[in-house]
Simulated scan of single mutants.
Amino acid sequence: MRFDPWNPDFVAHPYPVYEQLRREAPVSYFEPTDQWLVSRHADVNALLRDRRLGRSYLHVAGHEEFGREPEPEFQEPFWRVVRAGMLDVEPPVHTRLRRLVSKAFTPRMVESLRPRVKAIAGSLVEAYVEKGGGDLIAEVAEPLPVTVIAEMLGIPEADRHLLRPWSADICGMYELNPTPEAQHTAVRAAEEFAGYLKVLARERAADPGDDLVSALAAIPELTEDELVGTCVLLLNAGHEATVNVTGNGWWSLFRNPGELARLREDRSLLPTAIEELLRWDTPLQMFERWVLEDIEVDGVAIPRGAEVALLFGSANRDPEVFDDPDRLDVARADNPHISFGAGIHFCLGAPLARIELAESFGALLDRAATLELAEEPRWKPGYVIRGLEALNLTVSG
């Protein structure tokens, strides 16, 4: 098999291909997406921190100068939302936005959420165990982070059912060569979510509550578009990874029953197990960067204007960094995985994701006497954001 992100067999089993890439062509050009694939941990880690690359090039050049076609006009509402958040911009705009958002998203505030996260996870798992199982993703993995982020933002409970579909549709634009239908769906979701948040932000500016939208609305330096872009980013990044780490992680444990038994016997391994599950079957397989100045990687010249595809899933299995990388080890102590990125775009929500994962996995281990696969799961067709369609389990309390 070769690198083929549209092939279901590759999406299900990309790791042998990654091993071949690291060994034979650690930096290689992939014509179908006009990208340079970078597969080794050292290179991926270095490029994430290299300021000669960026998530965007629009702060230094126009589309034409970079040899790129301008985005179609119909996509404008999507990019207006996305580029108002900190993920898709570069300094000095990124620096200003991250500083402002960090004021409202402090480590103390995140840690203060732990009791609430524990209560939500416990309630979801209790209901799941009582009914004897079902789709773990739909009934536990998805509702937990969506409920947490909705409560953080101050989204009224009656509106929360809108969030997950909006997020999933928006994230469809990040897949490689998205279909026209996926593009239009992403644009529509971005428009609807932005419209909803603008109304909510104006309400909270006039009548503040104890929530993140109120806190952001009280920052005069933050524009309305930037507030919207920040909230959209927090929702998308704040739960897509958590959902997929939960599904991928339990599927990983079922494929490695000895490690599941270790975790059941010694709950103190939960923190290292979460990091290992993030590494072993990475939810975000690829992250892209634009080359703003000519660079050389492993002796390969990559010109200004090119796009690099940093293969997180490959980097996290690199034997130069991880001992016996294809082995799942819930006690792995030395684990410098890059599932949350690195450099200035390191995931702001990583501490919250870790809390959600620890409480979710812990609750299920505590309350389910038995956990068995009801059927082998199937992977969603997406490659960049990689997760299962469903994870159907049979559970007893």
Results as ranks from 00 to 15, higher is better:
142 E>P: 00
128 Y>S: 07
214 S>W: 02
64 E>H: 10
374 A>P: 09
281 D>A: 06
23 R>D: 03
292 L>Y: 02
235 L>R: 04
114 R>L: 05
258 G>L: 05
180 P>H: 11
169 D>E: 15
292 L>S: 09
10 F>D: 12
265 E>L: 07
67 G>T: 03
97 L>V: 01
204 R>H: 13
87 L>Q: 14
181 E>D: 12
34 D>C: 03
63 H>Y: 15
165 P>G: 13
245 V>H: 02
92 P>M: 01
307 E>Y: 02
226 E>W: 10
84 A>G: 06
9 D>R: 14
32 P>L: 13
324 D>H: 14
184 H>W: 07
245 V>M: 11
184 H>I: 05
50 D>A: 04
304 R>F: 15
222 L>M: 12
56 S>M: 11
297 V>Q: 08
132 G>M: 03
6 W>P: 01
64 E>N: 05
104 A>M: 10
283 P>L: 09
135 D>A: 08
318 D>E: 09
205 A>N: 06
138 A>W: 01
339 S>A: 15
75 Q>M: 13
33 T>P: 00
257 P>G: 08
281 D>C: 04
180 P>N: 09
28 S>T: 15
103 K>Q: 14
292 L>M: 13
128 Y>V: 10
220 P>G: 09
347 C>R: 08
36 W>C: 13
254 F>W: 11
327 R>E: 11
190 A>K: 08
254 F>H: 14
107 P>G: 06
98 R>C: 11
367 R>S: 12
61 A>N: 00
314 S>C: 10
339 S>C: 05
302 I>E: 13
29 Y>T: 03
164 R>K: 13
315 A>N: 08
131 K>N: 04
212 L>G: 06
365 L>Y: 09
243 V>F: 01
133 G>S: 11
337 H>K: 10
13 H>Y: 09
218 A>Y: 06
259 E>K: 08
69 E>F: 00
308 V>A: 07
56 S>L: 11
94 H>F: 00
183 Q>E: 10
388 L>C: 04
303 P>L: 05
225 D>R: 00
50 D>W: 01
121 A>Q: 12
153 L>N: 05
178 P>R: 00
386 R>F: 11
52 R>C: 12
162 L>D: 10
178 P>Q: 03
108 R>H: 13
178 P>W: 02
262 R>M: 02
358 A>L: 10
258 G>Y: 08
191 E>R: 15
163 L>K: 03
52 R>Y: 11
81 V>F: 07
253 L>W: 04
146 V>I: 15
